[in-house]
Amino acid sequence: MRWIPAARSRHWFVATYISAIVMAVLLNLIRFELLEQKLTLTHALRFTLLALALTVIPGLLGWFGARLFWLFAMLGNAVGLALMAQASRAMTGWEDLTSLLMFLFAVIGGYAVGLVAELIQWVVRAARK
């Protein structure tokens, strides 16, 4: 895990900024291109704020030292985006809601796995001392 920045490194801001932009673009592309929804500024801003929140929280915690949490949160985000894109292909009427729910469940799963991984790492470090 040497490619993940160290705690309190300035590289966390760059990683968070890049991941926020990528996630915002992908969320908006899935919503407005794959789901063929009408492009509205209100919805685009909401999805951008969602992407910002879902990347800033792990980025901030990673800056404080929760590197495993950041890793699994970003994996959850990526899996959620993939599931969201996959669910939006069937186009039977409920894809917008089901794809968003699948995305959020994957994100929550990534956060939960990250928290468990950080807890296990903390217990192992405490046991070594």
Rank of each mutant, 00 (worst) to 15 (best):
F72D: 05
V79T: 12
A24T: 10
T98F: 04
E36Y: 12
M74R: 15
M74G: 11
L68Y: 09
W63G: 09
L41S: 06
A24S: 14
R31E: 01
L100A: 09
L100M: 03
L54F: 09
G93K: 14
G62I: 02
L49V: 05
L29D: 10
R46F: 00
L71T: 15
R128T: 10
R128G: 03
I108L: 04
L68G: 13
Y17R: 13
G59P: 01
L52W: 07
T40S: 11
M1R: 05
I120E: 13
L50I: 06
I30K: 04
G62F: 07
H43T: 03
V22P: 06
S88P: 03
S19A: 14
H43M: 00
L54R: 08
L100P: 03
R89W: 09
L27K: 06
F69Q: 10
F69S: 09
L34C: 01
A53Y: 02
D96C: 07
A20T: 13
L49D: 01
R46S: 00
R10T: 11
V113F: 06
V22M: 06
L61N: 12
F69C: 03
G62D: 06
L50G: 07
H11S: 10
M74P: 02
M91V: 12
H43P: 00
I21F: 13
V123Q: 14
R10I: 03
V79W: 04
G114K: 08
L81Y: 08
T16Q: 04
F13D: 04
L119Y: 13
S88G: 15
M84S: 14
H43N: 02
D96E: 12
P5L: 08
L45M: 06
T16E: 03
A73G: 11
R125V: 11
A66D: 10
A73R: 13
L119A: 15
L75H: 08
W94I: 09
V79Q: 03
G62K: 11
N28P: 05
Q86S: 09
I108Q: 05
L34M: 14
H43G: 00
V14L: 11
V14E: 03
E36S: 14
T48H: 07
A85M: 05
R10V: 01
V14W: 00
S9H: 11
F69G: 04
G65M: 13
M102I: 02
M84V: 08
L119M: 09
W94F: 12
G114N: 08
F105S: 06
I57G: 02
N77A: 10
A20P: 06
W3S: 03
G80M: 05
A20D: 01
R67V: 00
T16V: 04
L50F: 05
D96T: 12
R128S: 04
T92H: 11
F32Y: 13
S19D: 07
V107S: 04
F72E: 02
S88L: 01
G62H: 03
